[in-house]
């Protein structure tokens, strides 16, 4: 079962994703694939809060900020994977530190393919993304490319997912499949 979750910031996506992953795991192995590579104190504080939220839920954490298929090395593919988030993963791939954060569009395309392959390689996955497409700001080129690459990932994942849910103010809009918690 592959579930794709998106929506605006601070609407309850991660909470739903955790509950969904726990429900899919049915007490079996469940991994939390952490994609954010912290760059400052603010990031570390966000991560600390997320780790706190997951405490006692039995997730095994896999740190994987790039090359998402490598998170499967040594992992049980029959288990349940919670990947949070495609947004952070793409950020790391599209603006690599070793290239001085210069835009790497081929890496973003590879990232999209790898995420689709990841979804096709595991029994259960819950993948979280962010909906950042509905404002009236005329962005610079690199931000537009980032939006477009994330939207490409979102559409590809939505297409292969069994369930697609948009979270708004803690409420769930089911666009595809059924939500079973």
């Amino acid at each position: 079962m592959i579930c794709f979750i998106s929506g605006g910031a601070k609407n309850g996506k991660s909470t739903l994703a955790q509950n969904l992953a726990l429900s899919l795991a049915r007490g079996g192995t469940h991994y939390y694939v952490a994609t954010m590579i912290p760059t400052d104190g603010e990031d570390r504080e966000r991560i600390r809060r997320h780790v706190e939220d997951r405490k006692g839920l039995g997730f095994e954490t896999i740190e994987c900020g790039r090359n998402i298929l490598s998170c499967l090395d040594g992992a049980d593919r029959e288990a349940t994977f919670l990947l949070d988030s495609a947004t952070a993963l793409l950020m790391n791939e599209l603006f690599p530190p070793e290239k001085n954060y210069e835009m790497d569009v081929p890496a973003a395309k590879r990232c999209a393919e790898e995420l689709t392959a990841f979804a096709g390689s595991v029994r259960n996955a819950v993948i979280v993304s962010d909906y950042l497409y509905s404002d009236a700001i005329r962005y610079d080129r690199s931000t537009q490319v980032y939006q477009q690459c994330l939207a490409d990932i979102d559409r590809a994942l939505a297409a292969v997912s069994d369930t697609v849910v948009e979270v708004s103010a803690g409420q769930y809009i089911v666009h595809k499949g059924a939500l079973k918690l």
Binding site: S6, Y131, D154, R155, L157, A158, V164, H175
Partner: peptide
């Protein structure tokens, strides 16, 4: 005025 209004989310029609 529309006879049909569709919102598209990640390629899916609502």
């Amino acid at each position: 005025e529309a006879e049909r209004v569709s919102r598209i989310f990640c390629g899916l029609e609502q």
